[in-house]
Nucleic acid binder design. Structure first.
Length: 403
DNA sequence: TCTGGGGTCCTAGGACCC
DNA sequence: TCTGGGGTCCTAGGACCC
């Protein structure tokens, strides 16, 4: 049976949401109407463009440009900081409105949703629903969305990416040659800046070129990725709308340091603060982790990571930190200036499913109680006030996250 | 005054086993 | 004297997404 899928994509999400939040707080200007961006903080060495207004886009500013580059492209550019708390709020408002249409909604990111409307509607009725969503979001929530209408997720997503803002587009199978094959191959979902030049060398320049390429040639050159890109180019995608909330597969946190650090003791202190934050989130998920991963980025942007599988899954701050510390020691070359340090936990399992380990001992249980006690203090008095690193300067680097 | 942070999935090579 | 081969697990790194 043919499926009916919508993809709802907020136009310039971070910028639009910042704009209406500012207006709500009495701002006289609508930053959607001027050359403006949402950017990181250059003084914290995270100065990149997160979102741009149409006028900023006309200057040639692209997402992930450095703010430095953006200012050169567009003198007089206005720059505003991001505020994820606000973004989550508006994202939830959108989600709640969409729930009136179906509960089969996959929140693909903070500003994108897939809706499975199969069994609800025929083509024409669905297009009307898409138009209604588009109109209602604008009138009731104050920002605009693009809505893509198709028979699978890939085509719905490609459709919502056509002309912007505030539009509804369809992409049915018979429309693929006109609407999709004519586009440059770089526009295809999952084709990034590494793959596109390789395709260009093979004289594959449009999505149509890719669709007409022998699948086996792509498989030989790109493996599984090659099969996938061929299928996508031909509009084939059987993946389901994942509307049930899934547990995370990994949890991590990393920081770009205010200045490069070449001192392992200092790095360890930051690693402890990261461990505290990540294990706190892990425990909130009621999960245990088996794999610990430490990432370093040098001042020259060389990334390395080392990971280790522990003998048993754990959520203990102490246990995970001791593993992380050893990984750091093992990979850090003395004197190397470090720009970024990160900690990730992978191979997560639900805590309930864990058997009581034979090696479970009094000491471990004591640690668990300690973690629990600290977590509830954090819940009660605020995350930042209760940390083991106990160093305000470092604690300030690691942001509290409410997942 | 260059170049974020949080994820997911895949690959390739080595170790080890039968 | 030549040098199996499949399978799994582990680790490091890469590609892509928003």
């Amino acid at each position: 049976m043919e499926r009916q899928i919508l993809h709802v994509d907020v136009n310039n999400a971070f910028l639009s949401w910042t704009a209406i939040d500012m207006l709500k707080n009495g701002s006289q200007i609508d930053i959607r109407e001027i050359p403006a961006i949402i950017g990181g903080d250059e003084s914290k060495r995270s100065g990149i463009v997160l979102a741009k207004s149409m006028k900023a886009k006309e200057c040639g500013i692209k997402t992930a440009d450095t703010i430095y580059q953006a200012r050169i492209k567009c003198p007089g550019l206005k720059i505003y900081p991001s505020n994820f708390k606000v973004y989550r709020e508006y994202s939830n408002k959108l989600y709640n409105l969409l729930l009136e249409y179906t509960d089969r909604i996959e929140r693909f990111s903070i500003d994108e949703c897939f809706l499975d409307m199969t069994n609800y509607l025929m083509n024409d009725a669905l297009i009307n629903k898409a138009k209604e969503i588009n109109k209602r979001v604008k009138e009731e929530l104050g920002f605009t969305v693009n809505v893509g209408v198709a028979h699978n997720k890939l085509l719905a997503k490609m459709a919502s990416d056509f002309t912007k803002p505030d539009r509804v587009h369809t992409l049915y199978e018979e429309e693929i040659p006109d609407k999709m094959w004519t586009l440059p191959v770089s526009e295809l979902f999952m084709l990034g800046k590494r793959t596109v030049p390789k395709l260009y060398n093979m004289q594959i320049k449009t999505i149509g070129d890719l669709a007409r390429t022998d699948k086996r040639i792509l498989q030989d050159k790109f493996g599984k990725h090659g099969i996938m890109m061929w299928e996508y180019a031909n509009g084939i995608d059987e993946s389901e709308v994942k509307y049930l909330k899934e547990k995370p597969k990994g949890i991590g946190n990393s920081v770009t340091l205010p200045e490069d650090i070449s001192n392992i003791e200092k790095l360890e202190e930051i690693l402890l603060a990261l461990t505290e934050q990540v294990t706190y989130r892990l425990r909130k998920q009621k999960m245990l982790a088996k794999v610990v991963n430490v990432q370093l980025r040098t001042k020259d942007f060389v990334d390395t990571s080392h990971q280790r599988k522990m003998l048993s899954a754990t959520a203990s701050t102490k246990e995970i930190f001791s593993n992380a510390k050893e990984l750091l020691k093992q990979m850090y070359r003395k004197g190397t200036p470090i720009r970024l340090i990160g900690l990730r936990l992978d191979d997560l399992t639900d805590k309930e499913e864990m058997q009581i380990s034979l090696f479970d001992n009094v000491k471990d249980r004591k640690q668990e109680k300690l973690d629990k006690a600290i977590d509830s203090l954090k819940d009660k008095y605020g995350y930042d006030l209760i940390t083991r690193a106990g160093n305000m300067e470092i604690d300030g680097l690691i942001k509290f996250r409410k997942d």
